[in-house]
């Protein structure tokens, strides 16, 4: 990766993708009727579910903020940056596998456009962070 602009571009596209996923996290509860579904849970589990949602939003927001505001530091090859890139690569690659092998096929058939869009977004994030992690770990740009 001899072009110094390429990692920055990859990270800005990742930032945009993460922001879109973040926005989708605010739209999904209504679209997927979280309220109706969650009302069938005991109050304690309902609270746990809401906390899980909050922390997921916090994590995705944190990643988006890193990519928007610190792309040079992330691509800079410091030990912390390398660890973060590997973490994000693993996080989103795992999310692709979950989309393919864990989520129910019927649900994916019900929302085919969303399924393709999310799979592509997760795939891009996994691949972009993996490429940058490999580049910073083994090639130091």
């Amino acid at each position: 990766m001899s072009n110094p602009l390429l990692p920055i571009v990859l990270l800005y596209v990742a930032a945009f993708t993460l922001t879109m996923i973040l926005i989708a996290n605010f739209i999904a509860p209504k679209k997927l009727n979280y309220k109706g579904n969650v009302s069938r849970m005991e109050p304690l589990h309902r609270e746990v579910f809401h906390v899980h949602c909050l922390y997921t939003i916090l994590t995705i927001g944190g990643m988006a903020a890193l990519c928007w505001f610190m792309p040079r530091q992330l691509a800079g090859g410091s030990p912390l940056a390398v660890v973060l890139l590997w973490f994000m690569a693993g996080y989103w690659s795992l999310r692709v596998l979950i989309q393919f092998f864990f989520y129910n096929r019927e649900i994916k058939k019900t929302y085919p456009v969303y399924n393709v869009m999310f799979t592509l977004a997760f795939g891009y994030l996994g691949l972009a962070f993996f490429t940058l992690a490999v580049a910073t770990t083994f090639f130091h740009f």
Partner: peptide, 27 residues
């Protein structure tokens, strides 16, 4: 907290989201 039994009445998707989020927080 007996998650398995507690999550039985909710839809498939909500149950899968619940487990996915829990897994990610653990990670």
């Amino acid at each position: 907290l007996d998650w398995k039994a507690e999550l039985e009445p909710v839809g498939n998707l909500t149950r899968q989201i619940f487990w996915t989020y829990a897994g990610y927080i653990l990670i």
